[in-house]
Each structure stands twice: as C-alpha cells, then as structure tokens.
Write a protein that binds this DNA or RNA. Sequence first.
DNA 1: CGTCGGCTTGATTGTGCTCAACCCGGGTGG
DNA 2: CCACCCGGGTTGAGCACAATCAAGCCGACG
Lengths: 248, 248
Amino acid sequence: MFKSVTNLKTSDCGDCPIQASAVCSRCEPDELEALERLKTYKTYAAGQTIIWAGDELQFVGSVVKGVATLSQTMEDGRRQMVGLLLPSDFVGRPGRQHAPFDVIAATEVTLCRFHKADFENLIKTSTAVASRLLEMMLDELDAAREWMLLLGRKTAREKIASLIVIIARRDKSLGPFEGNSRIQFDLPLSREAMADYLGLTLETVSRQISSLKRDGFIELTGKRHIAIPDFARLENETGDDTDGGMLA
Amino acid sequence: MFKSVTNLKTSDCGDCPIQASAVCSRCEPDELEALERLKTYKTYAAGQTIIWAGDELQFVGSVVKGVATLSQTMEDGRRQMVGLLLPSDFVGRPGRQHAPFDVIAATEVTLCRFHKADFENLIKTSTAVASRLLEMMLDELDAAREWMLLLGRKTAREKIASLIVIIARRDKSLGPFEGNSRIQFDLPLSREAMADYLGLTLETVSRQISSLKRDGFIELTGKRHIAIPDFARLENETGDDTDGGMLA
DNA sequence: CGTCGGCTTGATTGTGCTCAACCCGGGTGG
DNA sequence: CCACCCGGGTTGAGCACAATCAAGCCGACG
C-alpha cells in the first residue's frame, strides 16, 4: 500500500493514471513541466479529514486514487454530502481564502497537490489549465443539479437505485473497458455515507438495498460488493428518463 | 414596460445596471467594445420558456432584469428547480451543444445575449471574461451545494425560512442600500415555484408561510409582499449557523 | 471468547403528501 | 353593472413514507 504511494512520489506525469481527464489534460509539454515542478503527492488514510470547513485553504489538487467526499454539517449533527470526488476530480477552490466544506477521505486517497497561490498564478497564464478547469466546474455544476433533483423529488428507492447507477457508470468509465461482462464493483461508501449522499437515514438505506436485492435488481456479496444482472432494469428504478436522455 | 426594453436595446454597456457583477465586469474598454458589437437584448414575458431542456443551445448571456428559473421535470411531472437566476447571473453553458435544463421566466425577464459560438471564441482570447466566468461558476457551485443541504436535510419550516432569507439577501445586495430600514420586498416566485425550489408541495409551502406569519417571523401584505420585523430572528429558523459562518 | 463497528430488521411515530373543499381578487361577457 | 369564471392561494382530514427508537446479527480483531 505505502509502496504505491512511494511510486507515485517519484512518478512523472507521463505515467499518471488520471492524465487523460484531470485539470492538466490539455497542457502542452512545457506547461506540464511547470506543473511537474510544483506538484507534491500526499496520501490520506480512509476516514481522515483532508480539509476542514472554514480552514485556510493552502492547496488545491486532483484526486489520483481513492474516493473523497465533500460534506456539510449542521450544528445539531445533521450532515449532507455535497460532492463525491473520484479519481481525476479537482479539489479546492481557487480564489477563495477558506474552505467552504469538509473534505473527507472515504477510502485511502492520494492527491496530487499544488500550492494554491502557485496554481492561481498558473491559471492566469495557462489557458489550457484555466479552460479545462472551467469545463470541469461546469460538469460538476450539472452533476450537482441532477443531484438536487434526486434530493428534492425522488423516493428512497429511486435514490438508492440512482446512486448505484451513478457509481457503476463512473466506475466503468474510468476502469478498463469490460465489454459485455456483467457489471460488478465495490461500493466505496459506507451505509452512513450513502445516507449522507442521499439525504436519508442509514436505516432507510439499508432497507432499500435489501428491497432491491429481494426484487432481483442487484446482488450482494458481503456488505459492499454489488453485481447488476440487468443494468437497464435497474436504471428503470431510478425514475430518470431512460430513453437516451438529453444531456449532450 | 416595453419602453424600458427599447431603452435597453439602444443603451450602451456604460449604462448597464448589472455592469458591476456580470461576466463582463472585468473587461477592459476594448473588450467591452467587442462585446457591445455582439450583444442583443431580448425580453421574455413572465411564464414564458426561454430555453427548453434538450434544445440546441444557440446563445448564452446575462440576466439584466427580472427573475428566471432553471428546472428539471421527470416523466411523471415531478419538478425540481435547480437554479434561480437573478440580475447579473449567467445563462447558458459554453461548450455544450444542448441545454441540460429548462430556463423559464418567473417574472418579465430581459437578457443580454451573445451567440454561443461568438462567446466561446471570446473566452478563448479574453482572460477577463473567462476568469470572471470561472469565478461565477464556482460561486454557483457553492450555492448549489448549500441548496443541497437544504433539500436533503432541512425541515419544511427551515426550508421556507431559508428561502425567504436568501431572497432578502440577494435583493438587498442588488438594490440601493437602505440603511437600517425594515426589510421588505416582493416574492418573485409563486407558491408553486417556491415548492419546486424547496422540494415541497405547494400546500406545505402555504402552510409553513402561514405558520411563520402566525409566529411573527414575517408579515404578509397580499400574497407576495413580505416584511421581516427581525431579520436575525428569522435567520434562527433556517437551521444554519448564525454566528458569522465560515464562508469567506 | 468477548467486544466493537458496521449493518440489518422490527415496531412505532411523525412530518409532509394527497385529496378535497373553499377563499379571494381580477378579468370577461352578458 | 353584476354574475361568472379562473388561477392562485389557503385550510382541513387522513394517509403513507421515511424517521426514530430499539434489538439483534455478523465478521473482524484483540
């Protein structure tokens, strides 16, 4: 485990697993070289808080490996996840002094980090980074808006089905293409984290997962491993438009 | 009414009411001149759909006057608002072919529009526009995430109180400064639109407004005009951290 | 073997939804 | 001018879905 971290520390951007879709994906060789000089890797244990809401924001960066969550907590303890950060996702808010939300490692997480000030200078000069960042933020905004529909209008069952579909899709698009093999993967989130994602209690999450399993939409191995025998049938349970959809 | 629109058509950017905070707020004189040549104003009646989800996206622009909503509808009719566009807010998604959401005029709305292709060229060359747009999108993302907390975890009463506070704040920050005069304004949204914003039914919205009124947190004149005798006391009902808050 | 954390399942409660009646004000046509 | 209608809003009664409270399961780990 720590071995891979060490490898990452010495690896150059050419070997980077998220090269194709991260903020730096549009960079010219000379820009990459500049980034290379600025970057540092850091790995966080599962459960560790990477950034506290309200903290001074020292760095920004990309998730290289693992899954992190963005979340908000009310005084009385109610918590809502507001972002799910998978490999290649961007962490941090250039132009803001303080972090608006908690960033927590859901699994072991490796970040590729830049000092915020350095990065802010960079996006003033490098159109490649700035335009890619804008594009990524627009995508996140769209995702946040889909998520709002889920939170505001979907039933518990639809929420669970949606979450499983979302994770399955992102997993598939990142991993090696697996042809028509049956879809299966590990949930990177605990039941409680899923509840925080969906605006439910963990008991309701558990019940609905059991229900989807009873009805044959998913198969469970252990608590975390999920197999989807018929993806389209599960998509039907999400409440979303199945036929194509209009998001370009 | 149409008079003011006509005025806008001939007005130059120097007279623009949203100049200070729109996408163009950082432009140099020569950039403004370029924008000036590209822009066209268009006014939409209250209730009119400005853009349909799935439509080819022809233009982008700024809200100059009025209030528009971004929303999503499920096949069975459930609807969730996912954006509230007030004067100076940006409309459209550079880099996307099709509109992901419906844009609907809640009141009469005037847009300052640019052909999408023109605008996309512009942000390739003008750092001023591109960086301001990035900043605005980051702010919208933060707002969307606050909204997610509201949708996922707040009670009906907290949701209503939050909405009133949000509208009061935005109203105040845009209009002329009114010193310590008691806060009052017109709700730009119908009960149904408020329900779509908050993930509630319109009946629940109505009941909670009545309840806040009964308890003296707000005063109603007609259906739409609201006065807030004690703003801090209303803020207490939102469930949010009142003491300062950490958002820089 | 016992404990502990994550998860499941059950019983009960309560908040917000559904269905339904009614109110109010403004616009229209007889 | 008044009667009517219509859309937006309010209020009420009953219900359902998810929350809460509570017990128990299972696997990992000391």
